[in-house]
């Protein structure tokens, strides 16, 4: 199963992973055309800065025992047994935000515009080359690695 593995020390806080993620979710866009000012522009990954530790890349871990799935009562979040990725189904979501509160990494958030759905990493499943953020990271601070359960 593939996961994004973070090497915090390497991160420079350039936010290229943010752009890549926004572009991956704006149909037909690329790095030149992605609209960073659109109200719909939302990133599914975050870079926090800590004065002691430096940059902290916050990405969905697609956890083995995902708290978000466990806390979701409407079945909108499910762990795919084949890929191991935790996927979100907007149509089933009741917007109760139990997942947002329970994710230990704080990676989930309600969407800015309507606050009726959750913004969640989909592992770029529809992208033939895999996670867009990983391709865009100039420091190789995030990498896709095969992990066993």
């Amino acid at each position: 199963m593939k996961r994004i593995i973070i090497d915090r020390e390497k991160c420079d806080g350039c936010l290229n992973c943010n752009i890549a993620c926004i572009s991956a979710h704006e149909e037909g866009s690329n790095f030149y055309t992605v609209n960073m000012q659109s109200p719909e522009a939302e990133t599914r990954n975050f870079i926090k800065f800590d004065a002691q530790k430096g940059y902290l890349p916050i990405f969905c871990r697609h956890c083995d025992e995902p708290e978000c799935v466990l806390s979701c009562m409407s079945g909108a979040l499910e762990k795919d047994p084949l890929t191991g990725h935790v996927q979100y189904d907007e149509s089933k979501c009741a917007a109760c935000y139990m997942c947002v509160m329970n994710c230990p990494y704080g990676v989930l958030k309600p969407d800015k515009q309507t606050r009726t759905k959750v913004i969640k990493c989909d592992f770029c499943e529809d992208k033939p080359d895999g996670p867009s953020c990983v391709k865009a990271c100039p420091k190789k601070a995030i990498e896709v690695k095969e992990v066993s359960l």
Binding site: L15, I19, S23, V34, M36, Q37, A41, T43
Partner: peptide
Amino acid sequence: GFGLQGICCRLCSNGPCRITP
């Protein structure tokens, strides 16, 4: 991506600033 779009500014010490959501 910010460089490609021209939306990074480092004209002062409050920066570099980039346009993000």
